[in-house]
Amino acid sequence: MTDATPEQVGAALDKRLARLRAGLKRRHARETRFKLYGQLAIGAAVVFLVILLGRIVEQGHTAFYTHTVTVPVYMDPAQVDRAYPQGSNFEQMAAEQQLARWGIADDARGDVSRDMRGLFSSELKFVAADLVARRGDVIGETVPLAAPLSDDADLYLKGEISRDVPQEQRRLNDRQLAWLDRMKAEGVIGSHFNTALFTNGDSTQPEIAGVLGAVVGSALMLMVTALIAIPLGVGAAVWLEEFAPKNKLTDIIEVNINNLAAVPSIVYGLLGLALFINWMHLPRASPIVGGLVLALMALPTLIIATRSSLKAVPPSIARRPWRWAPAAPRRCSVTSCRWPCPAS
């Protein structure tokens, strides 16, 4: 038993309090830091998302507009055959005539006109041939032809090809860039919305390539998938929720569905290759094969999602038929109570 003076006690208490305060400060600092980590993590995820979407928009938006050049072409009767317009080299004709209008002489090897020709899309040939085939009277006349610019010229006008890059490292040489600038100044190049992107199929020429073929293919495949997966998936979910007896077999099916949901998509691809193409000899790359495989792949996810929606229907609604009519078939519970319920 020591006799502490009130001063001593007060000093000890103060010391203790100071230690506690320091500890509390440290703990609160830790608390703030931990909260900051959480905010940083979310911030990082959001930044990734913004960069991802931003880059896609930044890189993709120029695809939605394109440039068309309109050049007058004299349909030389010596070079254009009414009966076989596809045989004429309209691009060369247009290039040479364009050079002649500007008073630029071609060299012996034809390099100059080849450079000029490189500015036009090969689509020009089909536009011209189509015109000749429809109207033979244009032969011997000068007609304005509108066709897309070549992909390189289009990229230059969109600012993707820079003059700062040395000539050897870019797709267009100085001469071609000067011509493009001159055409632009003369007003023969127009820029407009790229409707071809949505009305054309794929092509090796970027300037006339479109997504229509791919969109139609995806739609067909999705249709097959939906037609197969939705009835099967909903049926399986209803069976598991409403009808399934509690036994080993049901357990196996349930475990199996959960496992299938985690099987990598490429394994389903191998299944489709071995089963549908190699064994059943269904046509390769057809919507039916793709749709079948996608249906098998979507099935487990569909079953799990449908089951959780069915579970969400309150038992007071789902079991009502039994209260009204205990002998009613179980099917009635599904058809008249679960489906109409907004939760399912």
Partner: peptide
């Protein structure tokens, strides 16, 4: 409906 579920297996 059972056949639908059996498709998974």
């Amino acid at each position: 409906l059972f056949v639908c579920s059996a498709v998974a297996v």
